[in-house]
Amino acid sequence: MNSEFTSPIGKILKINGKCISLIGNDIDTDRIIPARFLKCVDFDSLGKSVFEDDRETLKGKHPFDLVENKNSSILIVNSNFGCGSSREHAPQALMRWGIKAIIGESFAEIFYSNCIAIGIPCFTLKKKLIQDIQKYNNNKSLFLEIDLKNSLAKSNDFNFHLEIKESSKNMFLSGEWDATSTLLCKEKLIENKYNDLPYLKFNNLVI
């Protein structure tokens, strides 16, 4: 776990780090952070509880407990990662453990948008390539330099192109992934919409 956590801020252009592989499809957000840890009014202490129950079951053999994965920051996952609950606590816990980017075959939708909203780029790759990377990483450490602009990952042994939604990529490159201020820029348009929506006229707002 990364004890000196600071939230990402501004433009995200490059991410360099060691990879940690987590094998399995449909890994849900209840597994990433079990519901009992949601009893909190901030996200600060979530890092240590990431995958708590899975780790407990594997008694030290979970990838997040292995010595060789210490200080890893790029998570390699399989298909439909982050399905289930909308809890942002899941990517917040991963981020506070030290994860800065995720590469997977596919992501659940709400999890993906939560990652983008807090500054964790999620990239996709074909199933076979993910499996090859995980296999390689099983035998030796893999350090990647991810160049967001060119969607390129480089390592000592191989390079590959990463897929990322154009809208997400642009947000990171421009530093506008923290959406509030971008949305607030359109204040006048928001107010016009509020005044124009048919149901806001006939809705019984007095409750």
């Binding site: 909308s86 942002e88 606590h89 709400i110 948008s113 949305l183 607030l184 509020y194």
Partner: peptide, 21 residues
């Protein structure tokens, strides 16, 4: 109707809008 994460809850509170594909 759709679920959102906490950062988007913040956005809806602050702007009554969200960014979405």
């Amino acid at each position: 109707a759709f679920g959102i994460g906490t950062s988007q809850v913040r956005d809806v509170l602050a702007t009554q809008t969200i960014a979405m594909n």
